[in-house]
Design a protein around this nucleic acid. Structure first.
Lengths: 339, 339
DNA sequence: TTGAAAGCGCTAACAA
DNA sequence: TTGTTAGCGCTTTCAA
């Protein structure tokens, strides 16, 4: 049985209060007592129970994080920043990976409630009614990161997905492309589904380019999905000269599909991705991408959450909008009519 | 303030004991009382405090996991399986990402101790003396996954890295290659550094192929490292005809470097990786790899740990060795003298 | 079948 | 400056 504060007190010949005091670095402890306590702690190999402490302090230093898929390079990167910043502030992460599994998410949220976590970060936006209700009733500081569920009074740390998508499309148009394919996400996602789609269509419309249904497909942000959708698009009579995918994973899937069809990126087809995950530099040609400031996003997310937890004035009342950035690599090329 | 068991008891007009009983599904509660309690729980939106429960039960259902880098496709995949299996068994994960940061690891281990986690999983093997000592004194079930620290009385879930590396090298030799480069890991890692290196050299030696220092480099398992090392190797007078990298990330870095030098995989140079991460299928040509059974490894890890926690007879006393498997894709090709 | 009360390991009034 | 003691919210003897 691990030694408890009482054991330390006995060993040091003081009261538990005194031990508690030196543990918590309070003043009002004479040096010699403090030393005796510290020696006792060392001798016993005592470590205070965070559990007991949490119970009385009503503070767990735990943050629950719900991620759609840690296997994705985007989420694992943002998660690693979150972890880093949390750890720096003495908070610990409880990891929940939900793979489109509403029941699992609900269960985890309940666990978070039971655990009395100090804060919650959610990185997906498809909230079931049950989950939304639970969340609303939770009374635990909560932040959405990289997504924004529709019509909810929650705060998000996010980019302007519409503008980012608009800008990405404009980039391709600026390169002279007119037949621009679109590999979209889930249209029931507002942030990464609808907004990115509308950004794309608006940019086209503004340049007087008709939206061609044949060039538009929707998937699940993953590589395989990008591959499959691209395959369908390549079967069109006149294939597009450029493709915009709303995730880097999808873009890579598309590039692979193009490659497997004996075509070349960017000579035959330009491809641009979205996110700015490390995959962009791991593939050849390197993938141009409309990048989210992933590292900053993770950092800001946790910082804002901590502000909410401690009731700082820094606590956000509105969404925090971070800047997107086009990073040009090797996967796009100006379109020339007759090559 | 969240309602507590006492509130429920009052609302239902019973004692806290009775509430506790229905909470824990005990028998010896008459139906009508049970119903009253359940109604009270619903009305109050009561959720039992896991903290308080942990304190008396001395069980937190928490598992601490130490990962070197969740950003790596290998670790994020194994982590996602661990999370899945843990969740299925009502255990929650505390995530610790240590990036070659001994202090952070030590701190986390201490947090694990304070938190009274029920079990610990560690996925790296470079233990500092301080950490080793702490671990030994911990008295918490602990398992290493995918690595095995040298000379320690700890149990690992692991493949036979020596044999896997040997087999990978033999595969290249079987393809007719004689000048075989090696992109190794950290030689202070026994599992993935030394064992994989020795597997390589032994395979060469057995076929009478001299070990050529020029073709051998050591890095840190990451893409960038693979790229840089490959660059050095390509500068040799006669470059190798095949390269074996001890991680898929490194192999992809090597492929990229080869590509950037205007050479082709596998026509000019065969490349084989190690791990079986999803990157293998995201790159072109698809990467042949000596694969670890990542999914199974995660699953077995958590299952064995749970056995240790509950003192089952299934609890492992020795390392659990899983089978490696060569998966041939498109990055290797038989060597022909004059092409 | 139910309830009173002790105790899990700690902190924080309060008193000394 | 130090110690006594009453909780924190729950489970679990023990007795009724």
């Amino acid at each position: 049985m691990a030694p408890k504060i009482k054991d330390v007190a006995r060993q040091a010949g003081v009261s538990v209060t005194t031990v508690s005091r030196v543990l918590n670095g309070e003043r009002y402890v004479k040096d010699d007592l403090k030393e005796r306590v510290q020696r006792a702690i060392a001798e016993l190999g005592y470590t205070p129970s965070h559990i007991a402490r949490s119970l009385v302090l009503k503070k767990t230093n735990l943050i629950g994080v719900i991620v759609p898929d840690i296997t994705s390079s985007f989420y694992s990167t943002i998660l690693s920043t979150i972890e880093k910043t949390a750890s720096l502030n003495d908070y610990n992460l409880m990891l929940c990976n939900i793979i489109e599994d509403n029941d699992k998410e609900l269960k985890y949220l309940q666990v978070f409630k039971q655990m009395r976590v100090d804060g919650i970060i959610i990185m997906h936006e498809k909230l079931s009614d049950e989950i939304r209700e639970l969340i609303m009733s939770l009374d635990i500081p909560l932040l959405f990161s990289s997504v924004k569920p529709a019509d909810q009074p929650f705060v998000s740390v996010i980019i302007d997905d519409y503008a980012a998508s608009y800008d990405a499309t404009r980039y391709l148009i600026g390169l002279g492309h007119k037949r621009i394919g679109f590999l979209g996400g889930d249209m029931s996602d507002v942030t990464s589904g609808q907004n990115r789609y509308i950004g794309y269509t608006d940019a086209l419309a503004e340049s007087g380019i008709p939206v061609a249904i044949d060039y538009i497909r929707f998937g699940d942000y993953k590589t395989q999905s990008g591959y499959n959708l691209m395959k369908e698009i390549l079967n069109c009579d006149t294939r597009p000269t450029a493709v915009f995918a709303v995730s880097d994973d999808m873009a890579v899937g598309a590039m692979n599909c193009i490659h497997d069809h004996g075509l070349k990126v960017p000579e035959d087809l330009s491809v641009i991705g979205f996110d700015g995950s490390q995959l962009t530099e791991q593939v050849r040609p390197q993938l141009s991408s409309m990048e989210q400031p992933i590292l900053e996003m993770g950092k800001v997310t946790i910082e804002k959450l901590l502000d909410m937890i401690s009731g700082n004035e820094g606590a956000p009342v509105n969404d925090v909008i971070l800047k997107h950035k086009l990073v040009v690599r090797d996967s796009c090329k100006a379109y020339q009519e007759h090559v």
